[in-house]
Amino acid sequence: MTTLRETIPDSIEIPRPNPISRLLTAVLGVFDYVFEPLEKRFGFQRMAYIFLLPNMLIFGIFILLPMLLNFYYGFTAGDSILLGNRRFIGTDNIAKLLDCASIFDPSTCNQDRFWRGVGNTGLFVVTEVALIVVFGLITALALNRKIFGRGFFRSVFFYPVLLSPVVVALIWKWLLQQDGLLNAIIIGAGGTRVPFLLDGGWAQFWVIVIGAWAQMGFFTLILLAGLQSIPPDLYEAGQIDGTNPLTSFRFITLPLLMPTMFVVLVLSVIRAVQIFDHVYVLTNGGPGSATLYIVQYIYTTAFQNRNYGLAAAASLLLALVLMILTVFQLRLGRRVDAA
């Protein structure tokens, strides 16, 4: 059985280590007492699994096990959280969720709030992702130019990303509530109160805008990195060939930025589908169910209505949709890379 040390050929000259690396080697040498017997026991090739084991344990306990539990909960009924106290009911929960005459009219569905949540989430994903991509790209293009105070503006646009979603929601709530700052200004100017968070349409609008505002900085940064990776000589060559700013954007920037745009699209869609925290604080799904999104539906079904089985079934359906989306995006990504 060969050890790791024995695999290094004698012909390779190892440089003399400095005191810090010698100290580190001594400290890390402690691990030899653990790993050498393991290596002898399992062999060099299998050591990879030993090194993966801690991570796999964490993954198994905190991700895989809850996923399996959730899977089982989805097929059971009862208001106890202990599996032993729950009744197995097969696919009844899923059937109940999918029992719908028309998904475009939630009032015809057995679980109308689930389908309202699905519809609201669909609208949220499409509009928020569009806002993030379009305004993120415009902002990245502006910040990529040599403008005065560029570093300052880059920080300003990134700043909301550093805030907790709860803080973001509380700040905006303070601005938008009936007696909030925005209405105080409107009344001060002679206007009348606007029900920013009390009217369904307004509430949906603000939830989308605030979501985009809070996350745009992150995606702008990714797009900015993508823009900076485009070689400047391509633009110089384009200028020689007579491109104007619009055509160089169309034929140089956009095609070369496409892989980055794709990353932005994937990440922003996944984040948007999972929307919960800032909406929970800002509107809590209201007014009515105007801003009830699918994750909040799952949360309230489980922890307020105590229907853990139905909530688990809804999260299984959500996972299925996310998996389909991911596969679709991966395939699209390969095509973009190939192109």
Binding site: Q177, T283, N284
Partner: peptide
Amino acid sequence: AEVWVSAGGQ
């Protein structure tokens, strides 16, 4: 409206 309409699910 603050009490019933805007409280969401709580």
